[in-house]
Amino acid sequence: MKEFVKGRYRVRLAASAGDVQAAQALRHRAFFGAEGLDCDRFDGACDHVLVEHDTGRLAGCFRIFLMRDGSQLCESYSAQYYDLGALGGFGGRMLEMGRFCTDPALSDPDILRVAWAALTRYVDEKTVQMLIGCASFAGASAAPYLDSFAILKAHHAAPEHWRPKARAPLVYDFKGKILEAPDLKRGVAQMPPLLRSYLAMGAWVSDHAVIDKDMGTLHVFMGLEVGAIPATRIKLLRALAA
């Protein structure tokens, strides 16, 4: 992906160890509310996308792991938490997007839009056929998100032939106690913005959330087949990426 500018933001791939460390520092502030570095063994296998404000400040970042097909899923971040065996037979290129975050001091929705523009460019350049990742709900308790989880179960469940199975020791199973009449407005509002964006394009999700006490979050696996994205949405994304 070549560097490009959209409005007040410049987007580029990390080109040095210093760039990656800057992304790790922003991730730590965003995820833990403190200074430090959020890093793991997956960073080295990923491309890191930086969204920089025209002042030079790092406004957002995410990492992407490109796979030739489903046989490489075992190398992905998501495979720590989910049994992805059903997706192993997927024959096209796959891309895992992860660690998306924005500067906690900024509240500009354009950062997410620019991130989608960058992702669209990368997907087109690499002829990616499926996007995967984990959407994170703040906190390790499912109680605040019962409306959201009920909506995900009823309207966005993964098709059986791709459905991830539980691997993590602690999960909240959507097949268990779930609301029969969720508050739709509240449920949608509580979903992470990235997840809402995926769902608007036709993404599906796992039938359970992983309880990650170390990160203090609940992870929901999401998958999006590029070929299933509505034509009108594709047109909008490519216009954004132009």
Results as ranks from 00 to 15, higher is better:
Leu170Phe: 13
Lys153Ile: 05
Leu195Glu: 11
Ala168Asp: 01
Ile211Ala: 00
Pro159Phe: 14
Phe174Cys: 14
Lys185Phe: 05
Trp162Gly: 07
Gly202Phe: 11
Met191Thr: 12
Lys185Tyr: 14
Tyr172Cys: 01
Ser148His: 09
Gly176Arg: 06
Arg196His: 03
Ala209Met: 05
Pro144Tyr: 12
Ile151Cys: 02
Asp207Ala: 13
Asp212Ala: 13
Ser197Lys: 08
Asp207Val: 05
Leu194Thr: 13
Ala168Glu: 00
Ala157Pro: 10
Ala209Glu: 07
Lys153Ser: 15
Tyr145Lys: 14
Met201Tyr: 02
Leu184Phe: 11
Ala154Glu: 10
Asp212Ser: 10
Ala166Leu: 03
Leu184Pro: 03
Glu160Phe: 10
Lys185Leu: 12
Leu179Asn: 04
Leu199Glu: 04
Ala203Asp: 07
Phe174Gly: 08
Ala166His: 01
Ile151Trp: 12
Asp183Tyr: 03
Lys177Asp: 10
Val205Ile: 11
Leu179Asp: 05
Asp147His: 10
Pro164Gln: 00
Ile178Asn: 15
Trp204Asp: 00
Lys175Phe: 02
Ala168Met: 05
His156Met: 11
Arg196Leu: 09
Ala143Ser: 04
Pro182Leu: 13
Ala203Val: 06
Ala181Leu: 15
His156Ile: 04
Ala157Leu: 14
Met191Phe: 12
Ile211Glu: 01
Gln190Lys: 15
Ala203Asn: 09
Leu152Glu: 12
Glu180Val: 13
Pro169Met: 12
Asp147Phe: 14
Ala189Trp: 00
Arg196Gln: 08
Pro164Asp: 06
Ala154Leu: 14
Gln190Ala: 15
Ala166Val: 12
Met191Val: 09
Lys153Gln: 15
Pro169Ile: 07
Pro144Met: 09
Tyr145Ala: 08
Lys165Val: 09
Leu184Ala: 04
Trp162Ala: 09
Ile151Ser: 02
Leu146Ile: 12
Asp214Lys: 10
Phe149Lys: 00
Val171Cys: 00
Met191Asp: 10
Asp147Cys: 12
